[in-house]
Amino acid sequence: MYIQPFIEGQYFHIYNRGVNGEDIFKEQRNYYYFIQQYIAYCGDVFETFAYALLKNHFHLLVYVKENVQEPKHNKQGMIQLNASKQLSHFFNSYAQSINKAHNRTGPLFESPFERKLVDDESYITSLIYYCHYNAQLHGFVKDFKDWEFSSYHSILKNDNSFLASQKVLDWFGGSAVFKKTHEGRYGKEEMKKFVIE
Rank of each mutant, 00 (worst) to 15 (best):
F90S: 08
F90W: 07
F91T: 05
F91D: 07
N92Q: 14
Y94L: 09
A95I: 06
Q96S: 15
S97M: 14
S97E: 13
S97N: 13
I98R: 05
I98Y: 07
N99D: 04
K100W: 14
K100M: 14
K100Q: 15
N103V: 10
N103H: 10
R104L: 10
R104H: 06
T105S: 11
T105I: 12
G106C: 06
P107S: 14
P107E: 13
P107T: 11
F109E: 01
S111Y: 12
S111C: 10
S111R: 14
F113S: 10
R115A: 09
R115H: 11
K116R: 14
L117T: 12
V118C: 09
D119H: 15
D120F: 13
D120S: 13
E121M: 15
E121D: 15
S122M: 13
Y123A: 11
Y123Q: 10
Y123S: 11
I124N: 04
I124C: 07
S126P: 10
L127F: 05
I128K: 01
Y130R: 00
C131G: 03
C131P: 05
H132Y: 01
H132S: 01
H132K: 02
H132W: 03
Y133F: 09
N134Q: 02
A135S: 10
Q136M: 04
L137C: 03
L137V: 06
L137S: 01
H138R: 00
G139D: 00
G139E: 00
G139L: 02
F140P: 00
V141C: 06
V141N: 00
K142Q: 05
K142P: 08
D143I: 05
F144S: 03
F144T: 02
K145S: 08
W147Q: 04
W147L: 05
W147E: 01
E148P: 09
E148T: 13
F149M: 05
S150F: 00
S150V: 04
S150W: 05
S151P: 03
S151E: 00
S151H: 04
S151V: 06
Y152V: 04
Y152F: 12
H153M: 12
L156S: 07
L156H: 04
K157P: 08
K157W: 07
K157R: 12
K157G: 06
K157A: 12
N158V: 08
N158D: 09
D159N: 12
D159R: 01
N160L: 08
S161F: 15
F162T: 09
L163N: 05
